[in-house]
């Protein structure tokens, strides 16, 4: 049970303000989930520089300098490696592919929790008050094309960084959830039988794994979310982001809140209006509540365009 705020910026000029706008949105959802929080920022050149991939690990046993030194030994010579610590989160960049980087990281930190991966997204999450975490992550300084934030009031799983949202289980794919699923254990078993592995006991991770599994099978994001609606039972408002897209869906009963606002410059979703109140041009935005069971998707033109800041 939680708060969600998501923002996709179409107006290239506005992308320098992504972090500032998202900070304001986060303030509007803090009360809904004071336990823990997470952020996903897409295409911030300082967090995910072009030509690198980024992996997020949780509660690494090595400090950033030691981890960077060990990684430089594990990757080919002349590959640039940057490691930055943000509380329970460590962000690792390198000029190699995501899976190669993930492999290098797990060779140094066997069993470490990978909480983010991809070429475009930086995921940071942890326990504590969301606004303290936002300071730790220097949210206001962030720039980029798209961002997702989540504040969590844990229902049936532990208050840990691993249980925090977003769940990023495939490259550049992030999922946040407000609500609770009532048949996730069965779907988890079915996915396990398909060879899918899990990082947490969280019901929301099951949805993330399900979508990643469907996308890998060739479904579009919209189709995957529509199929999710036929399989998952319970209450949910979900926001799923990829390198270029943002999708929102609510369960067919639609008990959990969601509000969408859209202008030519941006599209935003939040659990409550007050998280949107400060966005530029909100007074003239098209504001609506997503209909139950309907998948809404917004896609930016291309990843190439995204990194042009």
């Amino acid at each position: 049970m939680c708060g969600i705020a998501a923002l996709q910026i179409r107006d290239v000029a506005l992308r320098a303000s992504l972090g500032e706008l998202m900070h304001g949105m986060l303030c509007g959802i803090v009360d809904r989930g004071p336990d823990s929080a997470g952020l996903a920022i897409y295409n911030d050149p300082s967090l995910t520089p072009a030509g690198t991939s980024t992996v997020t690990v949780l509660n690494a046993e090595l400090n950033p300098d030691a981890l960077a030194a060990a990684l430089r030994d594990a990757v080919p010579p002349a590959v640039g490696v940057t490691v930055t610590g943000f509380g329970e989160t460590t962000l690792i960049n390198a000029q190699i592919g995501t899976s190669a980087l993930e492999q290098a990281v797990t060779s140094i930190l066997p069993g470490v929790q990978i909480a983010g991966r991809g070429e475009h997204v930086a995921v940071r999450k942890g326990t504590g008050h969301p606004l303290d975490l936002a300071e730790q992550y220097d949210l206001r300084a962030a720039t980029g094309s798209q961002g997702l934030s989540h504040t969590r009031m844990a229902t049936e799983s532990a208050v840990t960084a691993a249980g925090s949202h977003p769940f990023t289980v495939a490259d550049d794919l992030c999922l946040v959830h407000n609500g609770s699923f009532s048949n996730h254990a069965t779907i988890r078993r079915q996915l396990c039988a398909e060879g899918v592995t899990f990082d947490s006991e969280n019901d929301s991770e099951v949805a993330a794994r399900y979508i990643a599994w469907r996308l890998a099978a060739g479904d579009t994001l919209t189709t995957a979310l529509e199929k999710l609606g036929g399989v998952f039972d319970g209450f949910y408002t979900l926001v799923v982001t990829t390198a270029t897209s943002m999708a929102i869906v609510r369960d067919p009963i639609a008990c959990k809140p969601a509000i969408i606002a859209e202008t030519d410059a941006w599209v935003a979703m939040a659990s409550e209006y007050r998280a949107l109140a400060h966005l530029p041009g909100i007074a003239n935005a098209r504001i609506f509540e997503p209909a139950p069971g309907v998948v809404y998707t917004w896609t930016l033109d291309s990843t190439k365009e995204l990194v042009t800041l």
Binding site: M1, C2, G3, D31, R32, G33, M153, T155, N178, G179, S180, F235, C255, K256, P257, S271
Partner: peptide, 14 residues
């Protein structure tokens, strides 16, 4: 069986 104007602990807080 459910309250008409809230569901879940986040809305219960409000």
């Amino acid at each position: 069986c459910r309250h008409p104007d809230w569901t879940g602990p986040d809305d219960l807080a409000i």
